[in-house]
Design a protein around this nucleic acid. Sequence first.
DNA 1: CGAAGTTGTCTATGATAATAGACAACTTCA
DNA 2: TGAAGTTGTCTATTATCATAGACAACTTCG
Lengths: 242, 242
Amino acid sequence: MSMQDTASSGVALWRLVADGIERGIADGRFAAGDKLPGEMEIAETYRVNRHTVRRALAALAERGLVRAERGSGTYVEAQKLAYPLRSRTRFSEIVGAGGREPRGQLIEASEDVATRELARELGMKAGAPLVRIEAIRLADRTPICVSTTWLSAELFPNAGAVFAATRSMTKLLAHYGVRDYRRGATRITAGIVDATDAARLDLALGRPILVVDATDHDLQGKPLMTKHSRFAAERVEFLVES
Amino acid sequence: MSMQDTASSGVALWRLVADGIERGIADGRFAAGDKLPGEMEIAETYRVNRHTVRRALAALAERGLVRAERGSGTYVEAQKLAYPLRSRTRFSEIVGAGGREPRGQLIEASEDVATRELARELGMKAGAPLVRIEAIRLADRTPICVSTTWLSAELFPNAGAVFAATRSMTKLLAHYGVRDYRRGATRITAGIVDATDAARLDLALGRPILVVDATDHDLQGKPLMTKHSRFAAERVEFLVES
DNA sequence: CGAAGTTGTCTATGATAATAGACAACTTCA
DNA sequence: TGAAGTTGTCTATTATCATAGACAACTTCG
């Protein structure tokens, strides 16, 4: 097939090939680490020139989805999501910047009371009412992390329902009039996934996780929410900027 | 803006302009009969050459969305076919109500056996003989949708030939003594047209389709046929009544 | 080692995309 | 009538898209 065969669609051929391969990766036909078919074979299935296939693969490689090994083949990258940790950290922006679609999903929302630790982080008294939101975040269809978020039940009444609707912490805060916020200190540790999180993250038992604790503040420095997140270590790599 | 300014996306500039104008028509910024901004003005808003705008407008004109009048302007021509989804849904009536002439055409008819899913929909056993009818429906000469329809080969023997002659599902059923029928649950999703359907619907590659799965029942609730239809999203607008 | 298969790179050609400028043909409106 | 604004058409140039062939560099495996 060449562009002039079909009524010109305004979409480059290599883009169609790249989209096809990417869908194959997204829906699991090609798993992480798998070897893709050879360039010649791909060219035949899409009925395009090998160079067109190379263009498509180059685009995917630039986004880090695949990696070519000379003489051997092209492999699906153990697609670790590059996750820069800055003061202005937004999951949706990070995932979107990688050309993938961010999704958030509420697992559970409940009322809670502040432990001494939580109270200190959030600048309130121990025993104060909190909203606890358990959520999962995905890039395309790949689970990236599960987070437990605590917010003041007084400042953010009904926060669980709002998050369920907006599926985004940023939008949740905007709903209460918070237009911007900053991340405070972020603590990173590692651990082994427990059974609950393993199921949520579609991870095998015994695999490592990155554990991140962080508190977000408004521009005046007032604490807004504190988070306890568990990332699938095999899918993420944090970038700490110096 | 030129293609080399942005990281090359594999989508032609004129296509971006055309999509932008089409969205303006779809969401009502430009109503049917309205005059579009002049080519120069469009070129400035999108920061492209006037010739690029003309390419975009030509693509829209070929699809019948706009009509250029020399010396005067370019006008919005058509509107989408309003397609209400009710229990009594007849393609011919919907199209006829819009003052257009409905047409149906057989693409292919073949014998098939019921998968478990089809068997459940049609209330039969898996492996039961089916007739599969691939058909296209048009309003005047514009393709609206392609449908794959499955019917019991025992209840509707030779259904393919009957449809080829009558070109209407309603008439086909009447031929077997079914005087009236109702639509059951309808499932609507969206997707991207594949190469086969693109050719049948006269759609460019990469354009969206509405995917509708539905099963029709007789007045006693017995399943008659189940359909898998793909509508050209740019030509149809579903109306779900509350 | 040697053969087969893979990715990387080079040259070359034709079609398409996008830009630029100029002018004709036509409509609208004062 | 005439000026302003619109679409239609022409030539020209540059960059990108897609194809084609050939060969190098490398990996894998018998």
